[in-house]
Amino acid sequence: MRRRAWTLASALTAVAFLAAAAACTVPGGGGGEAAASCAITATYGGRTYTDVGDIDFTLGAALGPAEFPPCADTPNDPGTTVGREPTRAYAVEGVDPRVAIAVRWDEDEPVLLAVRSDDGVPPEIEDLARLD
Rank of each mutant, 00 (worst) to 15 (best):
G64T: 02
R4T: 15
Y49R: 01
A11L: 15
E67A: 14
P97S: 02
F17D: 03
A100I: 03
P97Q: 03
E107V: 12
D118G: 14
P122C: 05
A100K: 06
D106F: 10
P97A: 00
L12M: 11
G53W: 06
A66Y: 01
T87P: 02
V103Y: 04
L12E: 08
T43W: 10
A114T: 02
A14R: 09
T41G: 00
E126K: 14
L63F: 05
T58M: 04
L18V: 11
A14P: 00
L59H: 00
G120E: 08
R88K: 13
R3Q: 15
P123N: 04
F57D: 02
C38H: 04
Y49A: 08
T81D: 04
A129W: 07
A91V: 07
A62F: 06
C38Q: 01
S117W: 00
A19D: 11
R98Y: 01
A42G: 06
C71Y: 03
E93D: 15
G31Y: 11
R88H: 08
G45A: 12
G31T: 12
N76F: 14
D73S: 12
A129G: 09
S10P: 01
L128G: 06
P123S: 10
V95N: 04
P70L: 08
F57G: 08
V92T: 07
L12P: 00
T50M: 06
R98E: 15
V111F: 01
V99S: 00
M1R: 08
G46Q: 03
A62P: 02
T58Q: 13
A9R: 12
D106I: 07
L113R: 03
A35F: 12
L113N: 03
D127I: 11
F17Y: 13
V52G: 09
E107K: 14
D119H: 14
G53T: 09
T7N: 11
V121P: 06
D132E: 13
T41D: 00
V52A: 10
R130Q: 10
R88L: 13
E33I: 10
P70E: 08
A89F: 00
V52R: 05
R4E: 13
